[in-house]
Nucleic acid binder design. Structure first.
Lengths: 339, 339
DNA sequence: CTGTTAGCGCTTTCAC
DNA sequence: GTGAAAGCGCTAACAG
């Protein structure tokens, strides 16, 4: 079965009895073309079912109307939401999104980013664990690019992200307002920029409120990581530490922990309050519903697109945008029980 | 700020003092090239930081090493898993994947698919609600393509999917084995092919087991849809129907329902058993953990890639692959309470 | 084994 | 207002 030669602009020109240039003109609505030619060309295009070759267009224009998004793990709800927002916003401008999942392998991020950039007009980089030095180096080679969820100064690269420092502080305030003073923080991956941000927020509030105490337990970013921390958390709650509330790195960790606590008969929020971060879709559907910090995932994706579009057009880059997470107080956190 | 002209194969050739053809040869490892030339060209490439233009390559080869995946909603866990599997498998062969989210707008699927196909070498179509007639039409225009999760015969298009008919039957058997005979089915979107498959499975088992009764309640495919069905379900459980178990279209619907039941003080599985479908990552972390039918999302993605690769290579298409979901019996389903 | 040459399909001056 | 012709960067004959 021979693969048919696709119809080209030349076929259309011949069919319409005009020059390729004219076809090209009506195709792009450029210059002024005789209405009659427009008509006949349009008819020929329809008759032949012609669609222009993107490859040829790219070659001559240097553009391919595509952007790439590099993520460590497509199964992370945060990146999914951003991808969705980006994809839909870009589509409105005729752009498509190429995804590249680095499978959490930091060492591969550089080549993947460069390769992806090469097929596209710009990239958005979600690389929370890439060392800063390397990040700067990569950015200088893949520009234009937008970075998500990590600070990066003096590089001319727009950043769109979440104000984790402030978010975690607000969350601690919420807990403190409920009377909790002995907290546990389930830390995310140590190399993660957003984890460092959260820890910075924690340090700030600790400095401001000497009445608080925060015990850190290293975990990760997934459901299992929270689940596995169960014993340690129970120890902190029932042992000398006497913790009454837990802040998890994100909702997945929080939900994993809640599962573990439930299995051990630890009541939430009766015996210990639990709060997450990100407000994933399922957060409000857990039992009890999880208190979390809501971040506008889709909107971040849209903002990323605005920046990318500006960069592609050669426009000036906007300043970084940081979204302040909004507290979603639900039933997994409650007043400290002073029985 | 002038955008610098990218370095081309001509620059490399000049720098190395050889012809473009030679550079092209070492680039592609084609034919045999003098080791000394290989060396000097390699050096020049490195020195100039040259990377070949994908657009030019595409134009001449007719390929662009990219495939597209069309999905109704990127936030659906099922598609996310498939996308992840596809993306990682394709990457191993040097292919990237373009995503196109149709925002659940069935009317747009056709143009999006055709446009996406035009930028890529093949597409994978997840369009559960597209009318079959339209689907056939689209497939004939975008080939090569792979269809996910819906049957489609005599079209030469490979299908990779889940055996919903069998899955739902197995689930009913599980419930029946626990003594449930009066069941409720929370139906998904009516136009959804996979919902029709489930209903077919239900009809089959109903024919085989006259002792069973299944009441259908129309819902949807999201968390809220399940949540909103709460009242109707409670009615079916406590009213004349006397249902003792609920099968939801998918896990999201099941989890939404469980939230509603919990708010109304209906015990699961004490008063009513609840089962989902898909086994999303969070299913085992709900309270109680949700009984579900597990489907190998990533593996489906990998299989899709195998098919796509074969099609792109012009090889024969494999037969349809249907994965049989595996029962994950958890605590949301229990023996019927004959108090 | 290497260089020259002719396109791939399209846009875009440049004449007419 | 329209057509002819020159490339965009690369690969693949074809000579040498």
């Amino acid at each position: 079965m021979e693969r048919a030669r696709p119809t080209t602009i030349a076929d259309v020109a011949q069919h319409a009895g005009v020059s390729q240039a004219s076809v090209s003109r009506v195709l792009n609505g450029k210059a002024s073309v005789d209405p009659r030619i427009v008509e006949v060309v349009t008819a020929s295009i329809a008759a032949l079912g012609y669609t222009p070759s993107t490859a040829a267009r790219s070659l001559v224009s240097g553009r391919n109307n595509t952007v790439a998004m590099i993520v460590p793990d497509l199964e992370n709800p945060l990146f999914q939401g951003i991808l969705k927002g980006l994809s839909r916003a870009a589509a409105l401008d005729g752009y498509r999104v190429l995804v590249a999942d680095t499978a959490e392998i930091v060492a591969d991020e550089e080549v993947i980013a460069i390769e992806a950039r090469h097929r596209t007009d710009a990239i958005v980089l979600c690389a929370p664990r890439m060392p800063e030095k390397k990040l700067r180096d990569v950015l200088s080679r893949v520009a234009p690019a937008v970075v998500v969820n990590r600070p990066i100064d003096e590089t001319g690269t727009p950043v769109v992200g979440v104000d984790y420092v402030r978010g975690i502080r607000d969350l601690v305030e919420h807990l403190a307002g409920l009377g909790h003073t002995r907290l546990v923080y389930l830390a995310g991956p140590a190399p993660s920029a957003s984890n460092r941000e959260r820890e910075r927020g924690l340090a700030e509030i600790l400095a401001a409120r000497p009445d608080l105490t925060i015990t850190t337990i290293a975990t990760g970013s997934a459901l299992d990581d929270g689940y596995r921390a169960t014993a340690e958390v129970i120890d902190a709650v029932r042992g000398e530490v006497g913790a009454t509330a837990v802040l998890a790195f994100n909702d997945l960790v929080a939900l994993g922990l809640m599962r573990g606590l439930s299995e051990h008969g630890v009541s939430v929020p009766g015996e210990v309050s639990v709060a997450g971060f990100d407000d994933v879709p399922l957060a409000s559907f857990s039992s009890p519903p999880l208190t979390s910090m809501s971040v506008p995932r889709s909107e971040i994706g849209e903002q990323v697109w605005q920046r990318l579009r500006a960069l592609i057009a050669g426009a000036a880059v906007d300043h970084a945008v940081l979204y302040s997470p909004r507290l979603e107080a639900r039933e997994s956190t409650g007043p400290v029980d002073r029985a």
